[in-house]
Amino acid sequence: MITILKYFRFSLGLILLFSIGYLNAQETTNPPAIINKNGVWLKGDLHVHSRHSTESSNNSVSKIINFSKSVGMDYLCITDHDNHVKGDVAHHTWADPEFKSDSLLLLYGAEWTTTRGHANVFSDKPYDHQRLFDIRDARDINIGKVKKSLGVHLSANHPSGKDNFGFSYDLVQSIEVWNSAMWPKNANAIMIWDDMLSSGRMMTGRGGSDTHHGVPTSSEKPGANTYQAEFNYVGTPTTWVFAKERNLKAVVDALDQGKASVSSNPFAPRVEFYADFKANGKFEMMMGDNAISNGKPIKFQVQLIGNKLPEEQYTVTVIKNGAKLNTFLVGGEIPVLQFTDTPDLKGRTYYRVTVEGKNTDYPQVPKSAALSEKMVALSNPIYFNFNPDF
């Protein structure tokens, strides 16, 4: 009789747990989307090469800018290799008469190309890149002093592989976690990003097409390399930033602060990620924000905004401290979900999300979707108990 009672209690417990889990799953679906009126979402590409990089001869600045405008980009950073112009990008890329636009925000930057790896510089104003070029073989501590004096944002490029980033990650504010349309090759970059986050660094994850070869214009014949632009060109992937205003400084500030997400192309939906830290239904935290945990459960909201595929079911995976916490299926006109979890009371905790599903077509770069496979978007983290100064 005792055995039967124990079995009954155990079975009832399983039923209750299953029921609670089912109800919670139902409660997470289809809440209203959050309308964030504190800024504006801007999309762009942070890693593009023009003819001022020696292997990009058919990719003029005007071609890049006109293409970017045609696909609705808001900002762009042309990042030519500094060793191709002996560090003097200011008198090459930026001095190019074609480096101008009445609508596209053009950041100042270059790819810092060294024997220890590559990094991109992002700035809202011209800066003396020659100073960085001249110390590319110096000790990290001295490089850091020059970078700080220039007031620029330094970002680690394609951190693993042939041109891995071999400097201290204390030098950079962001890391290229999604390089080019070929998503699978970024697995090691994601692993490094999670390692850096786990070490307490509040490091922004961003994308970059790293495109070198341009789409031929109507007056040009396709060259030996231009076919590559059918697979990878401006916007594969696209980095979205939540800027306070539509200007260059606000774009760089958003990158500094982690107010960013990445999508497979300019027409794919962006992912937004929020947290209701005060439990008042206002979701006052978003990607890049940091709070001191009070040990209580927190409700999070994930939403896909933009060109969703209404019939598509998207898989949203929640990553907590580098490990999968949960997976959800969402769909509809505005795919939105909520989940609840409790950050550690004393230790550091971060959450980020990835979105997989069928990719939105990118007609201008028709073969890119196949390389992106099912990866649609990823968010930056929301942080708890991080000390950015430690």
Rank of each mutant, 00 (worst) to 15 (best):
P310Q: 09
T342H: 04
I298N: 02
F300T: 07
I319H: 02
P343W: 07
T315K: 12
T315G: 01
F328S: 08
V365L: 05
L345A: 12
E312L: 09
A323W: 00
L337Q: 09
G322T: 04
P335W: 03
D341W: 01
F339E: 04
G332R: 02
Q338S: 13
L325C: 03
V355F: 06
A323E: 14
V353M: 04
I305M: 15
P363R: 10
L304A: 04
N326W: 00
V316N: 06
K346Y: 12
V355H: 08
Q364P: 00
I298T: 09
T342A: 02
V316Q: 06
N307F: 00
I298C: 01
T340C: 02
G322K: 02
K367P: 01
D361V: 13
P310Y: 04
T360L: 07
V302Q: 05
G331W: 08
Q301N: 09
N307Y: 00
S372Y: 12
L337K: 06
G357L: 05
V353Y: 08
Q338D: 13
K324Y: 00
V355P: 06
V316M: 04
E356A: 15
Q364E: 15
V353D: 03
Y314I: 03
A369Y: 05
G347M: 10
Y314E: 05
T342Q: 10
Q364G: 00
G322S: 06
P335V: 03
V318C: 02
L309S: 13
N326Y: 01
L329F: 10
G322Y: 06
E356V: 10
G357I: 07
K299G: 01
Y351A: 11
T349F: 02
Y350R: 09
E333Q: 12
D344P: 00
G332W: 02
N359F: 09
P366H: 12
Y362I: 07
K367G: 08
D361Q: 13
G357H: 01
G357K: 03
E333H: 08
V302L: 12
G331P: 04
L337G: 04
S368A: 15
D361P: 08
N359Q: 15
K367A: 12
L329P: 00
P335D: 03
P363Y: 03
V316R: 04
T327M: 11
P363G: 05
G357N: 07
G322N: 04
E312W: 09
Y350L: 09
A370Y: 13
L371S: 13
T315P: 00
E356M: 12
V318P: 02
N359H: 11
E356R: 14
K346M: 11
Q313R: 10
N321H: 01
K358E: 15
F300A: 07
G322A: 02
G306Q: 07
I298A: 00
R348T: 14
P335N: 07
